[in-house]
Design a protein around this nucleic acid. Structure first.
Lengths: 133, 133
DNA sequence: CGTTTAACTTACGTTCACGTCAAGCAATGT
DNA sequence: ACATTGCTTGACGTGAACGTAAGTTAAACG
């Protein structure tokens, strides 16, 4: 029962359905910063939060580089004033992007629903005619 | 003033901000089916509609292959019954995916707003303390 | 009729996001 | 003591989505 709150790479993989390779890759790209016990990696709460955000970002179609920049937004702890201001500005921009994407997504959902109704009717017709045979 | 309603590859590129390579690539992947006037491609209304859907799908993080399957949904014209049924089922699944994505997106937007408020306060503090000097 | 111009094909190159060995260290059980 | 298990670091491979360069053809222009 090692240190609670810290997870090995395998526990992380099982918990988030990713491979070790993926976690090491994210680390190489400076998206994660697990601590080292000897040679082994240990992931703390902070890394898990970041990983969640990474996986979510991917589902929205963001690249890892875009995600890396976004991650700083959730770690505003001890930034310099100028750096904080830049981060803040980037965040408002990203927020606008997301709101746009939500609008588009709403549209897409509506259109797809329409098409589904159409298909439903067509299927009903086909079924009716085959039953009439 | 060639045949209205039909666009050359360059007009398409300018209109949708893609490269010729991209359009030919989508054609190779059977996402677009421009008609041929001799060796040249001409894009009709149908292709433009499909291209819009392709670009939108990409913004949502779908792969071209996923998009290709989805495209059939908007072209339910003359499908076989069994094929139509399969397409329909796939569509309902995708719709569910999109609805999920919207929920996640809503969450993400909320969280980011929270972070922005936080950053705003921090910035205000920093500004106040530097002004007091 | 020669020459730009635009589109074409073929094919190899590139970036991203990992997958997949290969070889080595480190603790753990028998 | 030794083998198994789990993690490690390279390093090369891969599929997706194009980019890019080379050479070809066809229409249009002077």
């Amino acid at each position: 029962m090692s240190d609670e709150n810290l997870m090995t790479i395998r526990q992380m993989c099982d918990a988030y359905e990713v491979t070790p390779r993926t976690l090491r890759f994210y680390e190489a790209k400076e998206l994660l910063f697990p601590i080292r016990q000897g040679t082994k990696r240990l992931y703390a709460r902070r890394d898990r939060a970041r990983l969640k955000l990474i996986l979510r970002g991917k589902r929205f179609g963001f690249s890892l580089e875009e995600i890396r920049q976004l991650l700083d937004l959730y770690d505003l702890g001890d930034q310099q004033a100028t750096q904080l201001a830049k981060t803040y500005e980037l965040a408002t921009q990203r927020l606008a992007d997301m709101v746009n994407q939500r609008e588009e997504l709403d549209e897409a959902i509506e259109e797809l629903k329409q098409q589904l109704e159409w298909g439903e009717k067509r299927l009903a017709e086909l079924y009716a005619s085959s039953a009439a045979e």
